[in-house]
Design a binder for these strands. Structure first.
Lengths: 336, 336
DNA sequence: CTGAAAGCGCTTACAG
DNA sequence: CTGAAAGCGCTTACAG
């Protein structure tokens, strides 16, 4: 039904081989033939059948992307960056949302492997334990790049946000503006990003000779409800808490809203600093001080790294690229 | 390199045909053969080559989705709904972001056609004039469903938010709570969704015998900056404006922030109602009254509609499904 | 500069 | 119940 190379060949009275070569810009073909083929292709609205050419060339011109959640500022921005690079390389992007489920992740990897994608861009679901499906990708020698949610168990390139340094910067800012008893509303610590932010928090305290109190580190699993409960509990028993550093901006916003509902003044009584610099920082009141990282850039560089593997086959093993971050001071923290 | 049906056949000493049938659950195959094939396939970690089977069966098990922007609450939620249905149908989803550019949209359609997707789910870029690329889809007889950003120029199914009624509800609420001079910060009126919301606004005024003042309808093209400027200008010249209805929540939030920066009390002096019920409604202060529609549901139903075409081929032409909305009253509007 | 032929990995009418 | 053969639409060594 859909028109093929053969149709063009027969109307032009030449062979399909020649049509294929003309369409693909093969140097052997005469200018005249090339032109007549291209003109007719355009006129007939010919579109190469990617399944057929992919089967022949072993290239699907498709990459697969796994993210925990599409509907999040971080990942949807990263996806934009990825798409940008993919388009520039004439590639399609298969986007899969794992919903933080390893099971779902496993299924997607299987089906993307079956779709013969030329490469994978993966931000892991939380709770990583059994990652045999990732091993399947590596075993099949399909290029793979981790971004944001990475795993050190594999010798593949990784693109990360500046988690440790960013967190360090955030907490140092809190200390420098007078906070001494600083809570950390943490993410799942089996995620490197969360873990590194927590380490940054700890190191900043150490550097300023403030003792680390493990009871002030609350795992919230990215759930604002947990943040709310934790704040209610902590503020009840520790009247002297004066700062909160959250693993991301959603929890930071929740912290501000909760403190306000308890009639605790932000930042006069308690300062809050988030992580991510999402647009919501400028909506909540007081505006949330945060760490700006660049999800678009992270996606972009992850994709560039993947395509350099796909195109030049230079597998540079477990390289690691950290995208810089910066502190953005707003009204939820004090000035010096 | 990757293992094929032939490998399984030769190790088992049977023909590829039989392996294919066994794997696909063909009824003719004996239980014994089926089991040995499936066991070996699992053991060898066999994955069917989708390009090959797709070429043969003329089915790619892939659908293409076009959205103006991934990084938006509405579309990323809709995408989740779409993904849900796709997975249930064993389909992959190619997601393309048009960035509101018709040119980009045209390119994506071309390349998805070339990828031989089994169906399209499209939310159009704004500024629709030349939509010949959409015609190409229809001409190729590839199933297509429009969602949210629809066009009436094509006889294909459409899934929409309840734009007219929702807007009518929003504005009626403003009037019922005492507003009389109501501004509408509008979207691009060549988008049906925006247009219908504007019509809902107008009808609500008519129904309450309030004259429509075209100078109070400000096209903002979804840009918060335009909303800000419009409010500054209008509030300067019309001291008696007492309500604002915005085409979406982003503009609604911007309206609240702008009014506050001008020391105008919300809702005492001016009430604000948005559209969408995005999470930001509960972050801005006062919390934004809005119209809840269900982007996840819209995506879900659009996908279901598409798959009913793909699977049963029942093209039900230009059917139209409107997903219900409801008014969610918060603090940015007055109580009766 | 162009064509005939083989083959990518699969599915499926046809035959037995 | 199973196999041999053809073919999906393309690309590409080989030959001339």
């Amino acid at each position: 039904m859909s028109i093929t190379i053969k149709d063009i060949a027969s109307t032009l009275g030449i062979s399909p081989s020649t049509v294929s070569r003309a369409l693909n810009g093969h140097p052997d073909i005469s200018e005249k033939t090339r032109k007549s083929v291209k003109d007719l292709a355009k006129k007939m609205n010919y579109q190469v059948n990617q399944m057929a050419s992919g089967l022949r060339t072993k290239r699907s011109f498709t990459i697969g992307v796994l993210v925990p959640k599409i509907a999040s500022h971080f990942f949807s921005s990263a996806l934009s960056g990825i798409q940008e690079v993919a388009v520039a390389n004439n590639y399609q992007v298969l986007i899969c949302q794992t919903n933080e489920s390893q099971n779902q992740e496993r299924k997607y990897v299987k089906s993307l492997l079956s779709a013969k994608v030329d490469g994978f861009l993966i931000s892991l679901a939380k709770g990583q334990k059994t990652i045999t499906h990732i091993k399947a990708i590596v075993d099949n020698k399909v290029p793979l790049v981790f971004f944001d949610r990475i795993s050190d168990s594999f010798n593949v390139p990784k693109i990360e946000a500046e988690d440790f340094k960013g967190a360090h910067r955030a907490v140092t800012h809190l200390i420098d503006t007078g906070c001494r008893k600083i809570v950390h509303l943490a993410g799942p610590d089996n995620l490197t990003a969360s873990y590194n932010r927590m380490q940054g928090y700890k190191q900043a305290l150490k550097d300023k000779n403030i003792p680390i109190d493990e009871k002030l580190i609350i795992p919230c699993d990215f759930d604002p409800e947990n943040a709310k409960k934790a704040i209610h509990r902590l503020m009840g028993q520790n009247g002297d808490i004066d700062g909160i550093f959250t693993v991301n901006d959603e929890l930071g916003v929740e912290a501000i809203l909760t403190l306000k509902s308890m009639n605790i003044k932000v930042p006069d009584q308690v300062s809050v600093v988030g992580f991510g610099d999402f647009p919501i920082c400028r909506i909540v009141e007081p505006n949330l001080t945060s760490i700006r990282h660049n999800p678009y850039q992270i996606g972009l560089e992850a994709a560039q790294c993947l395509f350099s593997q796909i195109n030049h086959k230079n597998i540079d093993g477990g390289s690691r690229r950290v995208i810089p971050s910066e502190l953005v001071v707003r009204d939820s923290s004090k000035t010096k």
